[in-house]
């Protein structure tokens, strides 16, 4: 069964030869095992994936299926056990250049104000932060945080903190953006608005985005393709193309085409018997 899935993936990689040529990120037979005293966990098994230049790709799957692990391997933060990861034609050794990350936890520094937290990556990149204060405030404005710029992270709600983390990842305008459940802590309405906002940013800046989510409709709304993952061991089960027209609107979620896509994805989970997570 797993063998079949693996070969199906390999086929897919072969079939999309044209796109693979301008793939920004390539993963080939990636395995990741976490070793600990309490036994080894096979977090990723034979993952093959191409992320095309300028693509919006979502990773969708139940909790613990290795989504964060995949993202961290791709970011060069976690060593893979075997296989290959290529970014921009170079085999990965450490975090690639021009990368932005939104981690699953917000990772804000308690001793920095919201604005200073957002400016932190530029300090690491040794870019003069002065010229970035205005853009940072503008970015905070789009995420409804302008008035919180001088507050400390612990004075914010969970959703606000997560939005600050998104601003922090966006400010350096990275070509490759990895987002680990960025909207997980938000209410439905804010989430809808930020989905549209993210789509706008993506279409305007031509970023390549890897987006992790638990929400089927969010994945379909935003993505070119949705990679559906399964767990025990963590693997990519199927990659679903979403051929809905752009720009996508919130109202599209009620259209038959959208519902058809959502049902297709849900079927995969039902087949896996892992829908509950």
């Amino acid at each position: 069964m797993t063998m079949a899935a693996a070969s199906a993936q390999a086929d897919m990689a072969d079939n999309s030869g044209v796109q693979a040529a301008d793939a920004l990120v390539k993963l080939r037979s990636v395995y990741k095992t976490y070793q600990s005293e309490r036994g080894n966990v096979l977090a990723l098994e034979n993952v093959n994936l191409d992320i095309r230049q300028g693509e919006f790709l979502s990773l969708l799957g139940p909790s613990g299926c290795g989504k964060s692990t995949l993202l961290r391997c791709l970011a060069g933060l976690e060593r893979i056990s075997s296989g290959e990861v290529w970014v921009r034609g170079n085999e990965l050794a450490g975090p690639p250049e021009d990368l932005g990350i939104v981690f699953q936890r917000d990772m804000l520094l308690d001793w920095r104000t919201v604005l200073d937290n957002v400016l932190l990556p530029l300090e690491f990149l040794r870019r003069p932060t002065k010229g970035y204060v205005e853009p940072a405030l503008k970015l905070l404005e789009t995420f409804g945080l302008r008035r919180s710029a001088d507050r400390y992270p612990w004075e914010l709600s969970g959703g606000m903190r997560q939005r600050v983390a998104i601003c922090r990842a966006l400010l350096s305008d990275p070509a490759l953006l990895l987002m680990d459940e960025p909207f997980g802590a938000l209410d439905a309405i804010t989430r809808d608005n930020l989905n549209i906002e993210l789509q706008r940013i993506w279409t305007q800046t031509h970023k390549t985005i890897l987006f992790i989510t638990h929400s089927i409709s969010e994945a379909i709304l935003l993505s070119n393709r949705v990679a559906v993952m399964a767990r025990d061991p963590g693997r990519i089960e199927e990659i679903v193309e979403v051929d809905l027209p752009w720009p996508r609107t919130l109202a599209m979620r009620e259209t038959p085409e959208f519902i058809h896509h959502a049902a297709a994805v849900r079927k995969i989970f039902e087949r896996l018997g892992a829908f509950t997570g």
Binding site: R72, A75, G76, L77, G94, P95, L99, G100, I101, F103, R105, M107, L109, L120, P121, F124, L125, S172
Partner: peptide, 14 residues
């Protein structure tokens, strides 16, 4: 120190 914040720094080659 929270290893996650170290990851953040590593991402930006601090």
């Amino acid at each position: 120190v929270d290893p996650g914040t170290l990851d953040l720094a590593r991402t930006y080659r601090g």
